[in-house]
């Protein structure tokens, strides 16, 4: 199996995580250090084993970009969805659940070029479902900070 370049990033991130947790562990009282330290060492060991396996694979079979995992990736669609989701979460917690949800659904469905009739049905149906299930049935007070 060829070594993927994306795996270099994985190994780097895992080493950074090990370093961060190890540094934080040092700040703990001695009696609380043992268990997390052992886990950090195990993770460090496994990451190093994986690094060795990567090097062996690179020597034996060569390398590849690892981009195959992202074939058919639609950057515009993905990042717009991600941004809308982050904005939606922020809006739910600041503006209020129902208004933010209605706006999020309409904007996202418009972005996906869904027909207006389906947008209306989806938005109304989902809001009613959530109101029925969470507010009426479970008695969950959903965020309603600035608006409903």
């Amino acid at each position: 199996m060829k070594m993927k370049y994306t795996d270099i990033g994985i190994v780097a991130v895992f080493y950074v995580i090990c370093a961060l947790f190890f540094a934080e562990t040092q700040k703990l009282p001695v009696e609380s250090q043992m268990y997390p330290k052992v886990i950090v060492i195990i993770l460090f060991g496994l990451t190093t084993l994986y690094l060795i396996q990567m090097i062996v694979n690179a020597v034996k079979f060569g390398t590849e970009s690892g981009k195959s995992s992202f074939k058919d990736f639609q950057p515009k669609q993905f990042f717009v969805c991600l941004a809308l989701t982050v904005l939606y979460v922020a809006a739910v917690l600041t503006i209020g659940f129902f208004v933010s949800t209605a706006v999020f659904l309409v904007v996202t469905l418009l972005f996906f070029k869904v027909k207006p009739l389906y947008i209306a049905i989806t938005t109304v149906a989902l809001l009613l479902l959530i109101y029925g299930a969470f507010t009426l049935f479970l008695h969950v007070q959903l965020p309603n900070n600035l608006l409903f």
């Binding site: 969805c81 989701t85 939606y88 949800t101 999020f104 659904l105 996202t108 469905l109 996906f112 070029k113 869904v114 389906y118 989806t122 989902l126 959530i130």
Partner: peptide, 9 residues
């Protein structure tokens, strides 16, 4: 296209 926003919510 409909599943994505609905599951997010």
């Amino acid at each position: 296209a409909i599943l994505i926003p609905c599951v997010t919510v």
